[in-house]
């Protein structure tokens, strides 16, 4: 019985499929881990614009659907399910829990819909489960190195400006991102490593997670300010939101811009660039949101057209699109804004 019904359904589908001759419509589903994340919302906006441009350029319809996972992997899985059920042609996932990618890859494989992960890198083994799974992101390692380099350069240029205690040792704190996120681990690890490799003497006063959030970072910094006061000479934040949170805390504690510790972030979001401009944020590392968005769009289009993805983007291992970081300081801010 069921078979007959499904047969009829298929027939009906075929018939209805033959009847339409509108402009081809492709559906792209983008699942974001949390839209309140500044970097992610920037990327979402860029994706939206790029797809809209692509649509005009190619004369096809691209229906882009954004979903906000609100930091819940269960919710995100549901959203991905919905995309797959509605017959989306391509799915971009900014996964909430990077250890949970296997489920999504399997689902996508079952539905034969290519899935592009971005910004939050799934575990390599999960990504290897299917050749239709890709990752677009930046080398967290490089981000960390560049962040470290910023501080190292500043130290080499004018160590006294940083070393307020004058003991020749840089006292620093680290505001870490979400536990378990690859960027948290790698950025922290390599920024510090760069300093030590550069021959600096450093001392970690404290480190704590602020879950990428400005408010939590601000509260944490507030606590540290009471605890360490001026002893903090540098603040390494795993992203700009947290760096801005630290600045918020310092400013609301009554510090002037000059009195601020040397705070560096990662991502180069708009508010962060604004902070670089007014000198509160000493430097940030550009996590190329626009570049990532472009790569995602290019990769998506290649997959939709059935072309080899290699022709559209530089692909490592047939899976990874890596985008470089670039450091941004007050000196090269204008250049950076121009290239944007």
């Amino acid at each position: 019985m069921r078979r007959i019904i499904s047969l009829l359904a298929v027939l009906a589908l075929l018939l209805s499929g033959c009847g339409t001759d509108k402009a081809p419509t492709v559906r792209v589903g983008v699942a974001l881990y949390d839209q309140s994340d500044t970097f992610i919302s920037t990327m979402a906006r860029q994706l939206q614009q790029l797809f809209q441009e692509e649509e005009q350029g190619r004369g096809i319809k691209i229906n882009l659907s954004l979903s906000d996972g609100q930091g819940s992997q269960t919710l995100q899985n549901e959203q991905v399910d919905r995309f797959l059920n509605q017959g989306y042609d391509i799915i971009c996932v900014n996964i909430v829990d990077r250890t949970a990618a296997a489920v999504i890859v399997d689902k996508a494989q079952a539905a034969d819909v290519p899935v592009i992960f971005f910004n939050r890198e799934p575990v390599e083994e999960d990504l290897r489960r299917w050749e239709g799974a890709y990752y677009v992101g930046a080398y967290a390692e490089q981000g960390g190195r560049l962040q470290g380099q910023l501080v190292l350069d500043a130290w080499r240029e004018d160590a006294a400006a940083l070393d307020r205690s004058g003991d020749g040792v840089l006292q620093y704190v680290v505001l870490e991102g979400e536990a378990g996120h690859q960027d948290t681990l790698l950025r922290t690890e390599y920024s510090i490593q760069t300093l030590t490799a550069g021959g600096m003497e450093i001392e970690k006063l404290a480190s704590a997670t602020a879950n990428w959030q400005r408010s939590q970072a601000s509260a944490r910094m507030n606590q540290w300010l009471q605890q360490y006061g001026d002893a903090m000479e540098a603040v390494f934040a795993n992203n700009d939101d947290m760096a801005l949170g630290a600045i918020d805390a310092c400013l609301s504690a009554g510090m002037t811009v000059e009195e601020l510790p040397y705070i560096v972030g990662v991502d180069a979001t708009e508010p962060a660039l604004e902070a670089v401009r007014n000198g509160t944020l000493k430097g940030t590392v550009c996590n190329d949101a626009a570049g990532q968005a472009k790569s995602i769009v290019a990769l998506s289009c290649a997959l939709l057209d059935g072309e080899a993805p290699e022709s559209a983007v530089e692909l490592e291992d047939g899976k990874y699109v890596w985008l470089p970081y670039a450091s941004v300081t007050a000196e090269n801010l204008e250049d950076h804004l121009k290239t944007e």
């Binding site: 309140s36 500044t38 400005r214 408010s215 601000s218 801005l244 949170g245 918020d248």
Partner: peptide, 8 residues
Amino acid sequence: LWEDPDQR
């Protein structure tokens, strides 16, 4: 209750 610069 909580201050949130992200206005959540």
